[in-house]
């Protein structure tokens, strides 16, 4: 009988037709040599399966998703813009709170130092030491007495309706109006701010806190505007970043 020879590999790989397979099995049962060769081929095939795999030095998958040319510049620009708005927000908030509530010492917040203003009503720097019409209307009536209010709790302040533009009005108004006895105070747009108003003749101490107190030095209508712009820019940057990295 012929030995299996080349058929051994096909037998090993289960690639024989059923009839061929049966014939091969009956031959193997009686042929030591073919059994031996089959075992060697099997061992060789197993060794081949363990040959180590080389690894590529770079990614070989072609980049098929093309990022539009504008995405990366927009991402950078939006990120920088967001950072700038954050800085403006911080500056604005710092100004609005009179740099930590020490209104009297604040150089940047003339309105917050009511005592100082009372002492120097005509100082040129006191742009906002004034009863701007819109302010005076709402503020003149309560408490001409010395007043100090902290944070959120001053009743005479909460009575005032939010007037985001009050400070601009105030800064535009001439300082000559300061003698009217109006207390320059208004609430924050968010209703948080507190100021103390003092009529001119009565020296008073005002200590104020608050994120958005519209002092004369505040940048823009409210610091929250800058915060919102910063967040919006950050969102644009994030979306552009996702788009750039998705490819």
């Amino acid at each position: 009988m012929d030995h299996l020879g080349p058929t051994l590999s096909a037998y090993l790989d289960r690639a024989l037709e059923p009839a061929e397979r049966a014939a091969a099995e009956s031959h193997l049962a009686g042929c030591e040599r073919c059994r031996r060769q089959l075992a060697e081929l099997r061992a060789t095939a197993r060794l081949l399966a363990t040959v180590p795999a080389a690894r590529p030095s770079r990614s070989l998958v072609p980049r098929l998703v093309v990022v539009p040319a504008w995405v990366r510049p927009v991402r950078s620009l939006a990120a920088v813009t967001s950072g700038l708005f954050v800085l403006v927000f911080i500056a604005s908030a710092a100004l609005a709170t009179g740099l930590g509530g020490g209104g009297r010492e604040s150089l940047l917040g003339p309105l917050s130092g009511a005592g100082t203003r009372a002492a120097q009503p005509a100082a040129p720097k006191e742009l906002a030491a004034t009863g701007a019409p819109s302010n005076v209307r709402g503020l003149a009536s309560p408490a001409p007495a010395p007043a100090a209010s902290f944070g959120f709790a001053a009743p005479q302040v909460t009575a005032v309706s939010p007037q985001p533009n009050a400070l601009q009005d105030a800064t535009r108004t001439s300082s000559g109006a300061s003698g009217q006895g109006g207390a320059a105070a208004s609430s924050a747009p968010a209703g948080q701010g507190a100021t103390a108003g003092a009529p001119t003749p009565v020296p008073s101490v005002a200590v104020s806190f608050g994120l958005a107190e519209p002092t004369g030095a505040q940048l823009g209508p409210t610091p929250l505007l800058w915060l919102a712009l910063a967040l919006a820019s950050a969102l644009v940057a994030f979306v552009a970043h996702r788009r750039a990295n998705a490819a």
Partner: peptide, 22 residues
């Protein structure tokens, strides 16, 4: 869909390279 193709290709990248390298 190019993203789908990229994922598929990524699954076979290593094995294919190892094969071609052999």
């Amino acid at each position: 869909d190019p993203r789908a193709f990229e994922s598929l290709a990524g699954e076979h990248e290593r094995a294919l390279y190892a094969h071609v390298a052999r």
